[in-house]
């Protein structure tokens, strides 16, 4: 399988997005700003800075929709504009989307809110095949818009998402395992040392003689397994530590070399772990 760098992967994803902007725009942007309902129909670039929608232009295919401000009425000294979205071709499909999506949600993945409320949701919003869907917009001041933007920025997702990384780098990358093995050893050391300090108070026996005696009493298979469980991370951390120090002085830092030595590292650490566990 060809290996994809994060850059290539993003490019690929971007291509998909542009092809199917309908689903990606509506699900992606809505997901990023779940509280945003004012401009959910607009594809325009003014989201979310401009406080009020302009009428959207339809897609070049004529397949999408056009929208216009139909009704204006004053309430509480504010202008409430009711935006009616007139869908052209796939109207029935879109009108049924609410029910279908709710069903798909319930069927696919357990979601506490929708599982508990889907029945009520279906009742609360009578399903209709009408071609008109009202979406409320509100005229707000510049300050309010900026406050809204600030609030939305606080909901920005984690970036970059873990999903964009090459799987080989994510799961077999020496760097991640260096940290995992290192923190396992250091964590073990910290736990053991603290327990050793507290041992006289708690009546534990953690002196070297007791530990050796306890380990010696284990069956042979358990001893071998435990030794390998310690020896492999030790070998990995030691070999990869040297590899990273060489990276830091600029040796073996070509991309292809990094990938190659990354695979050698797994072989060497497993062989080294087996040697330390069973032949030492």
């Amino acid at each position: 399988m060809p290996r994809l760098s994060a850059h290539d992967y993003l490019k690929k994803r971007k291509g998909k997005r542009e092809k199917f902007w309908w689903s990606s725009h509506l699900s992606g942007d809505q997901a990023a700003a779940p509280n945003q309902s004012m401009h959910s129909n607009c594809r325009g670039s003014h989201w979310p800075l401009e406080p009020r929608c302009r009428p959207c232009r339809g897609d070049s295919d004529g397949q999408l929709y056009s929208a216009g401000i139909i009704d204006l009425k004053s309430r509480n000294r504010r202008t409430i504009a009711t935006l009616l979205v007139l869908c052209c071709q796939p109207t029935t499909m879109i009108a049924q989307r609410a029910g279908l999506t709710a069903l798909r949600r319930v069927a696919g993945k357990p979601n506490a809110f929708f599982a508990a409320n889907v029945a009520k949701l279906a009742l609360a919003q009578p399903l209709t095949t009408s071609q008109i869907r009202p979406v409320a917009t509100q005229k707000i001041s510049g300050d309010e818009a900026r406050a809204l933007l600030a609030k939305q920025r606080l909901n920005r997702p984690v970036s970059p998402h873990l999903d964009i990384y090459d799987k080989q780098q994510t799961w077999f990358g020496g760097s991640a395992w260096q940290r995992i093995t290192g923190s396992a050893f250091s964590g073990g050391l910290y736990v053991f040392a603290t327990a050793y300090l507290a041992a006289p108070l708690l009546g534990w026996h953690l002196e070297s003689a007791s530990l050796a005696a306890a380990f010696g009493a284990l069956p042979l298979a358990a001893k071998g397994a435990l030794k390998f469980l310690v020896a492999w991370p030790f070998a990995f951390h030691a070999f990869n530590g040297v590899r990273h120090l060489l990276f830091d002085i600029g040796v073996g830092f070509k991309r292809q070399t990094i990938i190659k030595t990354g695979w050698y590292l797994w072989g060497a650490s497993i062989v080294g772990g087996l040697y330390l566990a069973f032949f030492l």
Binding site: L26, S27, I94, A98, T101, N111, F114, R153, R156
Partner: peptide, 27 residues
């Protein structure tokens, strides 16, 4: 919240997956 959810549901075609929710942020 139900009214908002109903309104938003029509636009969602995929479920949200908050695997790694972002930590609190300040502007």
């Amino acid at each position: 919240s139900i009214a908002n959810a109903v309104r938003a549901t029509a636009f969602h075609t995929t479920a949200r997956r908050d695997l790694l929710p972002p930590l609190p942020q300040r502007v």
